[in-house]
Design a protein around this nucleic acid. Structure first.
Lengths: 257, 257
DNA sequence: TAGTGGTCTAGACCACCTT
DNA sequence: AGGTGGTCTAGACCACTAG
């Protein structure tokens, strides 16, 4: 019968002590999550890096392995980490596949996804409008960069969009270097900013004459407008994007429940 | 030092034994999930019912409480169960709130959600078309019921939809009784079929003259078309619904990442 | 006060990957 | 062989709810 066993560990740990002194603090695993999340925000661990093993993290933070496990698995559910049995735990990267499946909403009639090919029409640096300030939570007088593009799928111009970000957050964006197809990966690598979530509002609109010309349609044709606000790891708005899409050969997909 | 302890339990349990004889079987918690899921499909536990406690389930299935816990929490993440501390574990119900937040995609400009008010235009019982058979996975010659409605938000006709289900699966649907606003709740209560997931494909279209008249718009106005296939607990297609929406005052919302 | 789920720990064993 | 995550168990204590 192995004695009464389980002598409850005395509160000597940093996290453990914090937990016990105040009844109102968060659960330990949530505190572990916060610490790890903060290290990701600070780029202490960069995309693609391996985290220390569960055992090492548990020792460092002085909690049990099970508590670390719960924190890590919660963050896997948020797409922040990837775990591979026998290999380790890694910081998620904005690979092409990730961009396509997590953040690109248009699919062909057969459900297949294709990476678009973009052509930049214009790129301007100016003061933010009132609406841009509201959406991106910028102070009065803040400056932004707006990129307008036409994006083609299978060679056919299908989407015209404009992308707006804060100039302060992305200094010199669109200045010298060419913009890559996968902007989120670019933000992550060049600026250390990781997009983790996007809120989309979708409506049907009529094409302006300019849009019609760019997409090879008649003016007034029905287009799908996707208004997207992208949030970073620390839940702050980073990018405002409005895309207008010809949905005659592609459809926007979503899953509910 | 409490001896070496942890004498590994000999394989005497039903599930435990199954796990051990074959290396290729699913993890125990997945088997527990399957058992519980099957009981939900069979309506052995009905929406709103309380499940036995973790301890009771663990004893019945002869696994540890932790294994039951993981299974139950996984099913909470799937929205199949709800757990309330101090009360118990309950089978999810298709309440109004659930329908609104999980399965109704249109929100006002300020982000608020409103339950629509529907008026049935027609309700016909007939042989399924080829496309309907494909979508709902029906055999040749199968019959369906199609309901056409106009749905109003804040008193304004905003959506025209048609809803198609198998007559065999929903005998006498739309026959005598009036159809309620919340169809999924109706399916669940009257037919024991629970919708758990929906796949939506969205595009922009032009209103037909009939749609324009029903919605008070000019013919050719841009409408948002939502093509939705709803799946039941056992992952089979149950309902095919196509909604065409005036998105001038409401927008379709989705979250990505 | 009794019962439920929620948190936390400790430890065993397994499956997988690398070397 | 050694290290990693994945599964499973056993048990303690806490927080909440109800009678």
């Amino acid at each position: 019968m192995a004695k009464t066993a389980t002598t409850r560990k005395t509160a000597k740990s940093r996290l453990g002590a914090r937990r016990r002194v105040s009844g109102s603090t968060k659960p330990l695993y949530a505190q572990v999550e916060e610490i790890i999340r903060q290290r990701l925000i600070d780029n202490y661990w960069k995309p693609g890096d391996a985290l220390p093993s569960e055992i090492q993290l548990a020792a460092e933070l002085d909690v049990s392995q099970g508590t670390v496990r719960k924190a890590l698995n919660d963050m896997v559910a948020e797409n922040l980490l990837v775990r591979r049995q026998g290999r380790g735990t890694f910081v998620s990267e904005h690979t092409e596949r990730r961009a396509l499946f997590l953040f690109f909403s248009l699919v062909g009639e057969d459900g297949t996804r294709t990476m678009p090919v973009s052509r930049v029409i214009s790129c301007e640096h100016r003061k933010a409008t009132t609406e841009e300030r509201a959406r991106l939570e910028l102070a009065a007088g803040a400056e932004v960069v707006t990129v307008r593009r036409v994006r083609s799928l299978h060679g056919e111009p299908t989407i015209v969009d404009h992308v707006t970000v804060s100039s302060a957050m992305f200094p010199n964006l669109g200045g010298d270097a060419k913009l890559p197809e996968n902007l989120y990966r670019f933000y992550q690598i060049e600026y250390g900013i990781t997009i983790t979530k996007a809120l989309e509002r979708v409506r049907a609109v009529s094409a302006t004459s300019e849009e019609a010309k760019l997409l090879g349609l008649e003016p007034g044709a029905a287009l799908l407008e996707i208004d997207r606000l992208s949030l970073s790891l620390d839940a702050r708005p980073v990018e405002w994007r409005v895309s207008r899409c010809n949905t005659s050969k592609h459809t926007y997909v979503a899953e509910r429940g």
